[in-house]
């Protein structure tokens, strides 16, 4: 560890807060997007008009807005944390997505899916126990 203990603790707190923000905006964004798109109906086309029209659906618009916040908060997080740390840790979102699908969209969770949820949580905890920042390169403490 190349940082001072106080700086390191601050970095860890900041990392956890941003990981949480990334997870919540991703799950809620995908949820509202899915909700809106399934009201609209099948959308398989290369014509941009159909997609742009879909954006005027209020649920699709809400989902897209949340996903923009997701993208920006993930960019901020990746400015100091490793991709190989951020990926498994923010995968906790898959668990929330599955639970949201069950609660609000009446999708079923089979025993295999529950086992999958346990695997994901184990992976999140294991990767979350590593130091978030190992990449080489200048500018890590830059502006």
């Amino acid at each position: 560890m190349r940082t001072l203990p106080a700086a390191s603790a601050r970095l860890l707190l900041k990392t956890r807060l941003f990981a949480l923000l990334v997870i919540l905006t991703n799950v809620s964004g995908n949820f509202f997007l899915s909700w809106g798109l399934r009201r609209i109906g099948r959308l398989v086309t290369l014509s941009p008009a159909a997609y742009i029209q879909a954006l005027f659906d209020p649920w699709v618009a809400l989902g897209v807005s949340l996903l923009i916040v997701w993208l920006l908060s993930q960019m901020a997080l990746l400015s100091w944390a490793d991709l190989s740390y951020v990926l498994p840790v923010t995968s906790a979102g898959y668990v929330l997505t599955a639970l949201a699908g069950r609660l609000f969209l009446n999708e079923q969770i089979s025993p295999a899916r529950w086992l999958g949820i346990l695997f994901i949580m184990a992976g999140v905890i294991l990767a979350g126990a590593t130091h978030p920042d190992t990449a080489p390169g200048a500018g890590r403490t830059g502006r």
């Binding site: 190989s84 498994p88 999958g116 695997f119 994901i120 184990a122 992976g123 294991l126 590593t130």
Partner: peptide, 16 residues
């Protein structure tokens, strides 16, 4: 820890 974490997550996601 990260390799194992990533693999566990990937397996879990496939099970999902």
């Amino acid at each position: 820890k990260r390799w194992t974490g990533a693999l566990l997550v990937a397996c879990g996601v496939v099970m999902l």
